[in-house]
Design a protein around this nucleic acid. Structure first.
Lengths: 252, 252
DNA sequence: ATAAAAGAGTGAATACTATTAACCATGTGT
DNA sequence: ACACATGGTTAATAGTATTCACTCTTTTAT
């Protein structure tokens, strides 16, 4: 947290004015209420009117803070994204800095746990809610792909540098896939051969499938607890990368 | 299609009465309009009022046909489910009856193609829309898991009967997973060892991940065309099952 | 054939929602 | 102290779902 001050355009650092403080408070409150309502009722049940009621203003007042309902959803989206990345990052930092296996395992587990505890938010960030938010205005779609891809990518980079990965040579990859892998690599900012990028995507495809199964609950009638499938998958993926399950994995 | 007649409670087979015919027509029209609007605007953009406008009645009239908006969505859900299963079944029947590899490949490809062509409907059947619809009233959640699982399951059953599958023995499966696999097997009505059920679930997890990636479009900035990843996955999964890509695969 | 019953639609009413516009009070800075 | 920017209000418009009472038509039973 930064100190309660802000650099003005003239360079002075001033204490927040009363108005600025109130504005920041209301914005924070509104977003927090919106987040809670969305989690409880689903994003489609999130209404400006309900948020206005709870924060004690009339609905039109919120237009001074967000560009309508879409803007409110977008604000929630941004907040949730930050929280999500924070939690995954923390899970990684909780591991031994040299234990890539534990880092990958913990990161993936953190993604799963957060997604299960925040299903509506998962849908917003990585599911069907995403295209709607993304379609909103600008080009902010791939923030998750970029940040989460970057986080996993740094671990893959380290494995690659240490020569611990077996990956296909460029010539052995489906030519139709090569430009796609290159685009992904450039966008996420990875710096290793596309064969390694390929490994990443194959892993992500499996992780993402398990996440969606668990969150959307299609098979919940049988797989009520997703952890057994998850741990089997992790063993599988770590083995795929030439790693083994770390004995020092730290999960909260 | 049955002839335009119907068996009454007294056993007589009568031609449809005028009222019944009109009712059937309006219901068909309303569902078709609803399906189109949902596909165009998303399920959240599907309104009773819009449907009523297009079919030429006032909104309350639709309450004679559906139990409110939720009932309309549910009706669309049921229709879409039937259409989906129909298309996948047809894709299988287009293959050589003895070529399991082609059947599995074609079925999976049909699922992908349909899902991409019907993203909103996919979300309804197998994504975030599903819990909402499922939560509606009764126990109709696992119709897709049951029917699609059954379709794939019959192919796995045949492979198993022919002794072509390598699968883990019950003792080699994570004990936490065993009861889950049993429940799944009973619910879907499969009749082979849970080790084979395990293979199915592992395959489905991967297929589902690819589907969600393609439909929700998180990585569309790079993987605009999902077919290269799909074909690689199919080679992988078929290999996993001890099969090879069929040279006689027939896709439309 | 006629009367009763059932069904399908309408219109009105209630209660939500978003969004815009005009307006007012107050905090901020000169 | 004054001018202005800001943040809120109320009012109005328009769209939504849903329920209820009522009417007209079709079907069914006597």
């Amino acid at each position: 947290m930064a100190a309660a001050g802000e650099t003005r355009q003239d360079g002075r650092v001033t204490a927040l004015t009363r108005r600025e403080r109130l504005r920041a408070e209301l914005e924070r409150d509104a977003k927090s209420v919106a987040r809670r309502i969305a989690a409880e009722e689903g994003v489609e049940g999130l209404t400006l009117a309900a948020v206005a009621r709870e924060v004690g203003v009339t609905p039109p007042a919120l237009y001074r803070y967000f560009t309508g309902r879409a803007g409110l959803v977008r604000a929630v989206y941004d907040d949730v994204t930050a929280e999500f990345m924070d939690i995954v990052t923390q899970a990684v930092q909780r591991q031994d800095p040299d234990d890539i296996s534990a880092q990958l395992h913990a990161a993936t587990r953190a993604v799963l746990d957060w997604s299960l505890a925040n299903k509506v938010e998962f849908d917003l960030l990585m599911g069907a809610g995403f295209p709607k938010v993304a379609a909103s205005d600008d080009d902010i779609p791939m923030v998750i792909a970029r940040e989460l891809g970057g986080l996993f990518g740094r671990r893959f980079a380290q494995l690659w540098r240490e020569g611990r990965l077996t990956f296909p040579a460029d010539e052995d990859i489906d030519p139709a896939l090569v430009p796609q892998l290159r685009t992904y690599r450039e966008t996420v900012g990875l710096e290793f051969p596309i064969g390694v990028v390929f490994l990443m995507i194959i892993c992500w495809r499996q992780i993402y499938g398990l996440l969606c199964m668990a969150v959307y609950g299609h098979h919940q009638f049988a797989f009520d607890n997703p952890l057994p499938l998850f741990e089997h998958m992790m063993d599988d993926l770590l083995g795929f990368l030439g790693l083994t399950r770390s004995p020092n994995l730290r999960v909260p």
